[in-house]
Structure formats: structure tokens, C-alpha cells
């Protein structure tokens, strides 16, 4: 899935004012074959101090289930305004979500971290099952999660 997001779509703090100060970053999340209904998955960002900075993407359209993405919910407050325009369908068992975003240069290699929370109906909630730095040194390296994520990679 390749998503062309407009600058307005992603949370303001994460997006460069002009393309000259930004670069395109691709986030690829592949789920395990856990065999249940579609997973709710959220990609979100904290700064070097561990403070919530914004949400990149939320897969899972029905807001009544967002409370199960519990770290994100706690950090962001979970309001619909946080993810306006950056939500999509939940991700099926074994499927891949690939999104490309223009990320401000100032955030790259600056101690920012990407978190991935997942949850599945009748399953386990996995808050921050992936936490990786937003660093060029880790470009393209896949890491596995503790819950439903088989592999997650950030490519610059």
C-alpha cells in the first residue's frame, strides 16, 4: 500500500513546511499470521524526552476500539482530532501496511522514536510492541514485535 499524503494530512509537528527541508520516509509493517480479525495498528512518535509528538497513521476505522491501542491512547489522549485524515482500514492477518511520508529533517537522527501499538478482537492488546529510533543508521532494517507484528522497518 503506497499512500501519498498531503502535508496537511499528517500531524503538523511531524511535517516539514517545505519539501526542501524534508525527506521521504517509508514505514513498512507486516503482520504475523495470527488468524484473527483485522488488527488495529497505530504508528506514533515520541521525542528524545519520551514526550508524545504526533501520530503517523492509524489502521482501524472504528473509534470505539481505539482504547485498546493503550499506550497511544494514554500518550495522545486518543481524540479523533489527533488522527483526522490519517486513518485507514484495519490490517488483516499476514498483510502488510506500507506508508510513505515526508518527514522534517529536524526530526531525523534527533532521538525521536517510532512506537507501534496493536490490538485484535478477542486477542491481546500490545502497547508499544515496537519501539525503534527514527535514525538513518537503522534504514531498511526489519525488527520483529512481541505481539502481532512480524516485521517493521523504516526506510529513508
Amino acid at each position: 500500500m503506497k499512500l501519498a499524503l498531503s502535508a496537511l494530512a499528517a500531524t503538523a509537528a511531524l511535517v516539514a513546511p517545505t519539501l526542501a527541508e524534508a525527506r521521504q520516509v517509508t514505514f513498512e509493517t507486516t503482520l504475523k499470521n495470527y488468524g484473527g480479525n483485522g488488527a488495529y495498528v497505530v504508528l506514533w512518535v515520541t521525542d528524545a524526552a519520551g514526550k508524545y509528538k504526533g501520530t503517523l497513521w492509524l489502521a482501524g476505522a472504528k473509534s470505539k476500539y481505539w482504547r485498546h491501542l493503550s499506550d497511544w491512547q494514554r500518550a495522545s489522549g486518543g481524540a479523533a482530532s489527533q488522527v483526522d485524515g490519517i486513518t485507514g482500514a484495519s490490517i488483516g492477518s499476514g498483510r502488510t501496511l506500507k506508508i510513505s511520508l515526508d518527514i522534517a529533517d529536524a526530526m531525523i537522527d534527533a532521538g525521536y522514536q517510532i512506537h507501534v501499538d496493536t490490538a485484535v478482537e478477542d486477542g491481546r492488546d500490545n502497547p508499544s510492541e515496537i519501539v525503534v529510533p527514527l535514525a538513518t543508521s537503522a534504514s531498511g532494517k526489519a525488527v520483529g514485535g512481541r505481539g502481532y507484528v512480524k516485521s517493521f522497518s523504516v526506510t529513508f
Partner: peptide, 16 residues
């Protein structure tokens, strides 16, 4: 109706 968010249920978690 609840699944599609058509009821004015509160979405947010409790007070932090």
C-alpha cells in the same frame, strides 16, 4: 449503530 459510531457514545478513555 454503535459499531458505526452513529450513537453519541463517548470515545475517549477516562480522565488521565
Amino acid at each position: 449503530a454503535s459499531t458505526f459510531g452513529l450513537l453519541p457514545e463517548s470515545e475517549a478513555a477516562g480522565a488521565v
